[in-house]
């Protein structure tokens, strides 16, 4: 299933780095997200778009993960030739990530 079915997301930017949150709609799915959405999965999903490393922070207090993607904005918000220089649309790419359906869900 697409991650969009279990979680929502927002992107923020700083220089040439973006952060993308992954927030479980239902906190009971947080452990499933934590298990399946590793930094390596995200790095692989974004492919060429992200040149640098991906760091994952866990926030069980709010049932969310926070991914920091470095060297991801084609030189940075203020220099980039990209249409979406801020990477504001990146959260939508995250929502397209395919993940296994959690146990008990109608997949």
């Amino acid at each position: 299933m697409k991650l969009r079915e279990l979680a929502h997301s927002r992107t923020g930017d700083k220089g040439n780095t973006v952060n993308i949150s992954v927030i479980a709609y239902d906190e009971k799915h947080y452990p499933w997200l934590e298990r399946h959405i590793t930094a390596a999965v995200v790095k692989n999903h974004f492919g060429d778009l992200v040149k640098g490393e991906v760091i994952r922070y866990q926030l069980p207090n709010i049932g969310a993960l926070n991914f920091v993607l470095k060297d991801a904005l084609a030189g940075g918000v203020t220099r980039s030739l990209a249409l979406d220089a801020h990477g504001k649309t990146f959260s939508s790419a995250m929502m397209a990530l395919e993940i296994p359906p959690p146990p008990g869900s109608a997949a």
């Binding site: 927002r10 923020g12 949150s21 927030i23 922070y57 926070n66 920091v68």
Partner: peptide, 8 residues
């Protein structure tokens, strides 16, 4: 969503 906005 807003708490994690522009947060590292």
């Amino acid at each position: 969503e807003q708490m994690l906005y522009e947060l590292h």
